[in-house]
Each structure stands twice: as C-alpha cells, then as structure tokens.
Design a protein around this nucleic acid. Structure first.
Lengths: 246, 246
DNA sequence: ATGAAGCCTTGACCGAGATCAAGTGGAACC
DNA sequence: GGTTCCACTTGATCTCGGTCAAGGCTTCAT
C-alpha cells in the first residue's frame, strides 16, 4: 500500500480525513478510480435531496452545514441530524434517501458516484471498516439525541445544542485554549426548534433566559460566547463530559 | 464458498439469519472458529451490560426482548432502542457499551467473543457488509424515532409504538392473513413510557382512550387486537405505510 | 384467608411549553 | 430616506401532558 506516502494532515481541501473516507488517501491514489469524485455546491436553503428520491451518490461535507429532516404531512418537521464539515452522507447499498437533506448554510460537498464507490468499498476493506465506524458513531449520536428529545426540558435542550455546536466547532478549529468559547450559531431559531422538538418562540425565550443569567453571552443574534463551558454543560444535564458527536 | 450447501431457511434456533450475521451460515461452517460462539440467558429485569462497562462480546437476540436505555443522574430514563429476536447487539471496534442493555422479558442471546468476531469480520467481507447494512437500518429506525419523540402527540406516540410492534411481530411470525392483528404487548406501561418519552399515567390514559374508541381491543392488560391496521397507522400520523423497523 | 407487592387505572390539579398576536431591528432594495 | 422583508423577541392565554394521590386487580407468600 502506498498510503504511507501521503501526508494526511495536509489534505487541506478534504476534511473528510477526520472521520470518513479521505478522498486523497483512498481515492486519488487509485488512478483507475479518477473521475468518480466531484464537487457540488448549494446555496443556503437549497435541497440536496428529497426523501424518497433516487440517491446516486455518497459524499461528505467540505464546508457549510446540511441538515437531515423528516416531515409529516401536516407540516410538522423534525431535524434528525446535522452534518458539519467532514460528516458523511449516503447509504451504500440503498437506492433512495430516507429523509430530506437540506443546505442550512451555503454548502460544498465532495461526492462520489455511488456504484464505483461501492465497488471501491468492496475492494478496499478498510474503507468499509471506516464507514462502519462512522455509522456506529452516528447511531450513538442519534440515540444520545433521543434522550434529549424525550426527556430534557426546553432549557436543557437549548444548552445541549449549544454545547454540541461548541464542542464540534472547537474540534474543527482546535485552538483549545481553556478560556471562553466563541462561535457563530449556524442555525436560525426555527432550525434550532426543529432540531430540538420545540417551537421557535420557546427557543427564543430560553436563549434570552440563558443570556440574562449569564450562562451565555450574545452579540447580535448569532454570535455566542460561552464564558464557562462547565456551567453550560450542567445546564444541559449532561452527566459526563464525555464527547458525543452531532 | 460452501455457502450454498446450507439451507438458511432451516436455521431454526438462529433467527439472526434474517437481519444479521447468521451463526450457521457464517460461523459454524468455519471450523477454525468453533468455540467463539456461546449462548447466554437472562431473566426479565436482569441487566445484560451497564453503560460504560467493558463489552467483550457481540451477539444477537434469539428469543425475548432487550432494551437499550440511557439514564440521567436524576433518574430520568429514555429507552433508545428495542431489540427483538434477530436484532444484533454490539459495537465491533468499540471497547465499552454506550448505554445500558436490559432484559425486558426473559432473554436468550447468541453471543460471539468480540476479538475473534472482529477477526472473522476482517476475513469475511460479506459479514462486514451485512453489519453495515444492519447498522444503517438501525440508524434509520433511530431517526424515525426522533420524529416520534420530538413532534408527535401522546396519542400518536402510542399508536406509533403499537404499529411498530404489530409490524415486527407479524414479520417474525408471518401468517400475513389480512384480518385483525393479534399480539401480546411485551412491555410494561412504564417501559412504553420510557420508550415514548411519556409518563406511565399518560400511556395508560391514551391506551384506554384508543380502546374506548375501538382503535384497539384489549383483553387483560397486555393482549392486544388491532381490528384495522390502517386506522391505527392513521392515528400514528405515519405518512406512508412504508416499513420502518424498530 | 390475609397480606403484600407489582402493575395498572382513574381523578384532580398544575405548569411547561404551544399558540396566537404584536412589535423590534437590521439588511436589502428602490 | 422610505419600504419591505426576514429573523427574532416578547406578551397573553390556552392546553396537553406531568404530578400527586387513591384505588383496583393479580399473583405470590404466609
């Protein structure tokens, strides 16, 4: 294997290396597979794929944020996943998408045509293995989120979401200084509500409350400072500080 | 491959064949791996494994029902998965259990020691592939459940749970006659509440209401008859009749 | 039989969050 | 500068489901 020749830490346009199949490490080096990889860009609000549609690609997020959402006929919607840079989208072996994928912000995805990707997976056990690990991570995250949806109060839900975003943000740009954490909320109040199983009014009220009590600081509507991460996590009701992923 | 010599439909003590790694098809035929498989039995209420514990096996449910639950320090608990016969438990590549696994009824599991199983997986791509498919199924089910937890009313939640159990029950014993569906509830009201993010009182009230309105019939506290599956699914708010799994 | 423990049901009341409604503030566009 | 639009905030009220409490029905042990 020529893997060792590649400096993974410098695959700068392909963040996939963190958690998924790295395009540089696993695909570009295999000349016979050139051409199955391509980039797609979406504007905020665009739909990447509708639930039920034919899904002829897999891929991962390079920049921006995508959401996975499910909708009932009467319009109630629930976001069931948040895809941040390096997250993988796709169901090798499946024909259709099981839920809508929406670009929450402007979005760039690195895609692979599905059939050749599946062939590649068949020939390259460690890709299948990595994919399984990633899927297990997602499953853990989904189940962690079930606890949030089923048992936490509105306030705890907001705190949980903020601490997840803070943690993910910190791990993407790991300047790990132990001071206050600062980031921009990538979601509207409505999107947060859809993720948390709340209404946007409740989200707004709870954010105001957390702000008034100094748990978070707000500059404008989106720019958040968390002076004390430990306190936020207490508000979230998280037992351990153990990292669970989005 | 000697796979073709095996009559999968007669692996009667190993329901794994439906959705997971069939012990007969994938392990017993490989003599060098004899001894890695064993059975474990649990009584109703027993704990299979605690969250955080070392998990040195993988396996699947042969008979009975197990639940995956998460608990907050203050005692609030959320069931994040229900394991019916043929469902797989375990996280190849992971050291510790991410949540408690409890025997909800008397339970028999078919287990494999983890290390040899992982070796087997490495040598047998189609096992890894099947495991990926199963994990994707579970992920879809978990996300479907997020919609239930986040957006459905108590009544819809109960109807959703009943229709899932009915569907799973029917697929295990597929006598597919298009009449009323009959089954025994394998869960206490409290367990149902933990699965649905409700209190046991609310579960009881909603079941009484559905009974009074003729959506379900009850004999005793557990024996359920569903005269019209279509009607139950309408109550559940399920858009399609598409099968999602527990 | 009697008591005790589990599991379930039902009632009365309450409160967190939904709903309905009005208003604010900033950005874009003429 | 004014208009429009959109994301957000805040208030008033309502309601679904939670909480607290009492009692019923089975099963099992004494």
């Amino acid at each position: 294997m020529l893997k060792a020749q590649f400096d993974h830490t410098n695959c700068s346009d392909c963040p996939i290396r963190h958690r998924a199949v790295c395009a540089h490490c696993d695909v570009d080096e295999l000349e016979e597979l050139e051409g199955i990889k391509y980039y797609r860009t979406f504007e905020a609000g665009q739909t990447v794929i509708w639930s039920g549609d034919q899904m002829n690609f897999v891929g991962s997020v390079v920049s921006g944020i995508a959401s996975l959402t499910q909708t009932m006929e009467d319009g109630r919607t629930q976001m069931v996943g948040l895809l941040l840079p390096s997250d993988f989208v796709g169901r090798p072996g499946r024909e259709t998408a099981p839920y809508d994928v929406l670009a929450t912000t402007d979005l760039v995805m690195c895609c692979f045509r599905k059939k050749p990707f599946e062939t590649l997976m068949g020939n390259t056990p460690h890709i299948a293995h990595r994919l399984l690990q990633m899927t297990l991570d997602e499953l853990d995250a989904a189940r962690e989120w079930m606890l949030v949806l089923g048992r936490k109060t509105a306030r705890e839900k907001i705190a949980s979401l903020l601490s997840i975003i803070a943690r993910r943000d910190a791990s993407i740009a790991p300047k790990q200084k132990p001071g206050p954490i600062v980031f921009d909320l990538p979601l509207t109040r409505e999107a947060m509500a859809d993720y948390l199983g709340l209404t946007l009014e409740t989200v707004s009220r709870q954010i105001s409350a957390l702000k008034k009590e100094g748990v978070i600081e707000l500059e404008g509507k989106r720019h958040v400072t968390i002076p004390d991460m430990r306190r936020l996590m207490d508000e979230a009701g998280d037992d351990s500080d153990g990292g669970f992923l989005v």
